[in-house]
Simulated assay, not measured.
Amino acid sequence: MATGSGESVPPHARIAADIKRRIADGRLRPGERVPSTRQLARDWNVALATAAKALTLLAREGVVVAEPRVGTVVAESRTRKVPRALSDDDLTRERIVRAAVEIADEEGLDELTMRGLATRLGVATMSLYRHVGGKDELVMLMVGAVIEDFPLPGGRPESWRAGLEISARTQWAAYRAHPWLAHTTSLTRPMPSPSLLEHTEWAMRALEGTGLDPVTKMYVHTLLFSYVQGIAVNLERERRARASTGMSADEWMDAQQPILRGFAESGDHPAFGTLIRELGDDFDLDLDRLFEFGLQPLLDGLATVIGSR
C-alpha cells in the first residue's frame, strides 16, 4: 500500500514500481497473476482508472502480459540467446513461415515485421526476400500453413448440414488457436489461398443435390464463413485491449458499472434498466458459448432456405 515518500511520483507510477519490486525480489514470478485492477484500486485507495493506468504502463514495458481467461500475469523473461546465423541452405520458406506464425501468435499480426522476423531467425533481413516477396505474401503463406493444421475430413459430407457444421467448427478451432487469423481475410476481397479454397470446395460438395442455384450456394457458404469470422475477430481484439489497458474483459466491465447503472436508473431506457436488474452479476460473455449458441439456429435458418428449394 502507498505510504511514506515518493508522493511527487504519480500514483500509477508508484503502483507500477511496487509491482516491479515484487517481481525483482521473487514475490511475483513469471506466469503468476498480478493484482487485478479492482484489487489495486482497493489496496492503494485510488480510482480504477489509475490502477488500470499502472497495469498499462507495465504492459507497455513488457513487464506483464494479458493471458486469456487468466488475467494479467508476469511476463516471461525477454532475454533470448542470440540465434546462430542460418546458412542459405538452412533458411527455408517453411521455417520463415512458422517463425512468423509464432510471432503473430505471441504478439499479434501488427507486431510482425520482416526485420523482427529476421532477428528471430538470426539472419539478415534481405535473406528473407529470397524466399518470400514481402509481408503480404508472407501473411498469405501463414494463413495457408495454419489452416492446413486443421484439415477437413476426406470424402464427401454425410449431409449438407453436417458438412457445413464441420466446416464452421474447423474454422473456429483455427481461429481459437491463432486469434490474428480472423483479421487476415475479407468477404469482399477473399484471399487466394489454396487452404481456404478447401473450405469452399467442402461446402460446395455438401450442398450438392440441394437444388440451390450457384449464387445461393455461395451466399450460404459466405454467410457461414462470416458468422464464424465475425465472432472470432473479437479474440484478437480482446488480446489487444488487454495489452493496452492491463484489464481483463471482466475488470473493464466492472469499471463501466457506474455508467451502466446510471443509464439503467435514468428511466430513459426502461427495457435496458429491467435487463440490468434481472441480469445482476450472472451474465458472462463467453465467445465459445456465443459461437455454440448461434451455430444451430443459423443452420436451422438455412434449412428453411434449402428445404424450400
Score class of each variant (00 low, 15 high):
residue 151 P to C: 04
residue 88 D to A: 13
residue 146 V to F: 08
residue 109 L to I: 11
residue 105 D to L: 11
residue 118 A to W: 01
residue 86 L to N: 03
residue 123 V to P: 02
residue 63 V to M: 10
residue 117 L to I: 02
residue 88 D to F: 10
residue 138 L to M: 06
residue 141 L to A: 03
residue 59 A to H: 11
residue 109 L to T: 05
residue 76 E to T: 08
residue 51 A to M: 10
residue 73 V to F: 00
residue 53 K to V: 10
residue 85 A to C: 13
residue 148 E to K: 15
residue 144 G to S: 12
residue 66 A to D: 04
residue 122 G to T: 04
residue 59 A to E: 01
residue 152 L to Q: 03
residue 63 V to Y: 10
residue 99 A to M: 07
residue 119 T to K: 11
residue 81 K to N: 15
residue 114 M to T: 05
residue 90 D to R: 12
residue 86 L to G: 04
residue 119 T to L: 13
residue 120 R to Q: 08
residue 114 M to K: 03
residue 141 L to G: 03
residue 136 D to T: 14
residue 89 D to M: 10
residue 67 E to Y: 04
residue 120 R to E: 09
residue 150 F to E: 00
residue 51 A to Q: 13
residue 126 M to L: 14
residue 103 I to Q: 11
residue 90 D to W: 07
residue 88 D to S: 05
residue 117 L to K: 02
residue 84 R to N: 13
residue 129 Y to P: 03
residue 61 E to R: 08
residue 48 L to F: 10
residue 64 V to Q: 02
residue 87 S to R: 11
residue 82 V to I: 15
residue 57 L to S: 12
residue 100 A to Q: 03
residue 135 K to S: 02
residue 54 A to Y: 00
residue 81 K to L: 14
residue 143 V to T: 10
residue 97 V to G: 00
residue 112 L to V: 04
residue 77 S to F: 01
residue 132 V to Y: 00
residue 83 P to G: 05
residue 97 V to W: 00
residue 89 D to H: 14
residue 71 G to L: 07
residue 127 S to H: 14
residue 115 R to F: 11
residue 145 A to W: 06
residue 90 D to T: 08
residue 58 L to C: 09
residue 150 F to C: 07
residue 57 L to M: 14
residue 106 E to D: 10
residue 141 L to C: 01
residue 81 K to C: 06
residue 96 I to N: 04
residue 109 L to G: 10
residue 150 F to R: 04
residue 49 A to T: 14
residue 110 D to Q: 14
residue 119 T to S: 13
residue 68 P to M: 12
residue 150 F to A: 08
residue 104 A to W: 09
residue 48 L to Q: 05
residue 50 T to P: 07
residue 52 A to M: 15
residue 109 L to V: 10
residue 138 L to S: 06
residue 103 I to V: 13
residue 47 A to M: 14
residue 114 M to P: 02
residue 77 S to G: 01
residue 107 E to L: 15
residue 96 I to W: 02
residue 56 T to L: 11
residue 139 V to A: 00
residue 140 M to K: 13
residue 117 L to H: 03
residue 105 D to Q: 08
residue 77 S to V: 00
residue 93 R to S: 13
residue 127 S to C: 04
residue 74 V to A: 02
residue 80 R to L: 08
residue 121 L to P: 00
residue 130 R to E: 05
residue 86 L to D: 02
residue 70 V to Q: 09
residue 122 G to E: 01
residue 62 G to Y: 02
residue 57 L to I: 13
residue 76 E to G: 05
residue 78 R to G: 12
